Simulated scan of single mutants.
Amino acid sequence: MFSNSFPDRDAMAAMTADMLLEVRAVNFRPADPYTLTSGLASPVYIDCRALISYPQVRDTLMDFAVATLLRDVGFQAFDAVAGGETAGIPFAAWIAQKMGLPMQYVRKKPKGFGRDARIEGRLHDDQRVLLVEDLTTDGGSKVRFAEAIREAGAVCDHTVVVFFYDIFPGTRDAMASHGLTLHALATWRDVLAAARRRESFDAGTLAEVEAFLAEPLAWSGRNGGATEILSGQKAGGMDGS
């Protein structure tokens, strides 16, 4: 079903971008930039949490996510689905339902009482677990969640997100060096292309966004933000929301 009935990768990216714009999850504000926790000044911000309020949109995006995984990883590649606390939990639940798989979720840190667990739900040794989140910037939190799953005795080689910033070189390679392959439905460049096609923002705003995507640190510096990302800091300030 999924392998033959869904659009190709580029079409799914374009449709994902359209849906993000339609539900106003995308925010472009070059005149009054957002300051991320890393200190980076950014004209762009995305709120994937907004998707949970739009059943038709979220259902279509979860179909896209499953189709992407079946195409790129395989039909029998996973035994369970885990969501990252907190934004990844609803998306993991919907994907687990569609794939007919058990679900867990991963805490950012042990809860500090009772079993002091980081993994909630039944996790079995050698279970092949798909990690689900809403978005990623530098991939740091995805690696930490995957390591928690592995420490609990399971296998975690893949993570899927709705949105990948894709503005800092080497993110995919850095995640791969930790044994984690990233799958994403859309990036800022897909959203920028859709915004142009739909004329969602004026030309000046789109030009500033394009300048940021081309050189985020330089753009940040020109707009009062950080000009470098310190080692160990989250590049986007929102990874693992």
Rank of each mutant, 00 (worst) to 15 (best):
C48D: 13
V161Y: 10
L101H: 04
Q127N: 10
V57I: 13
K108R: 14
T227Q: 07
A25N: 02
G236E: 00
S38D: 01
I46V: 15
I46H: 03
S141N: 12
F201A: 11
E208S: 13
V66M: 10
T181G: 02
P90V: 10
A41I: 02
H178I: 01
Q127V: 02
M1F: 12
A176C: 04
F168I: 15
G170S: 05
T137K: 02
V209C: 13
T37H: 06
G153R: 13
D202N: 14
A193D: 08
A87S: 11
L185P: 01
R189Y: 08
H178D: 09
R196S: 07
V143C: 15
A226L: 11
E228D: 15
F201I: 05
L213G: 05
D134E: 11
A207G: 04
A214Q: 09
G232T: 05
D79M: 05
F64N: 03
P55A: 09
E228H: 15
V66T: 15
P33G: 00
V162Q: 06
A25L: 04
D32G: 09
L101I: 02
G153F: 15
V73C: 13
M99W: 02
A77G: 05
A218H: 11
A226K: 14
T159V: 14
M175C: 11
R29V: 00
H124S: 12
L21I: 08
A148T: 13
V162N: 07
R198M: 07
G74H: 01
F91W: 14
D10G: 04
H178N: 10
D173E: 13
M12A: 06
L131H: 08
A174V: 03
S141K: 13
F212E: 10
D18C: 03
A77Q: 09
T205D: 09
F28V: 05
F163Q: 12
P33C: 01
L69Q: 07
G39H: 01
G112Y: 09
V23Q: 04
A186C: 12
D138R: 06
L101D: 03
